[in-house]
Amino acid sequence: MSRVEIRVTISSDQDIVLARQKGRSLALELGFSSGDATLIATAISELARNIVSYAGSGQIALKDLQGSSRVGISVTASDNGPGIPNINQALRDGFSTSGSLGLGLPGVRRLMDEFEIDSKPGQGTKVVVKKWRP
């Protein structure tokens, strides 16, 4: 049950900025505090960056979540890139396939309340994260 859906195509570093700006304004519209909106915008920035660095292009979809007694935001990052061969390893802190800081999935998980990932080598990656308004 969501009322809003915003899709941002991610293909360059400019799109990363656009996606996180849209995410912040949706979060504020949904009544998140500006502190939480910053956490959400930062998570979007990381997810969009993964798309640019690992898959080249993909999409970020932002949706509101209307539960029976709570409101939240969901962010879906999807691409048709090479996929992640070892998800468990990617979710461990300190793991990166490209240099000192990459992937950042464990960090994104800490910024949000819910985290789901689906990825197979050669078939792309889909990450869905959610945050609920306290």
Binding site: L39, T42, E46, L111
Partner: peptide, 13 residues
Amino acid sequence: QPEVAFAMVQLGL
């Protein structure tokens, strides 16, 4: 900013 600092440490930065 305080909020940015909070998000950064959550990310481990």
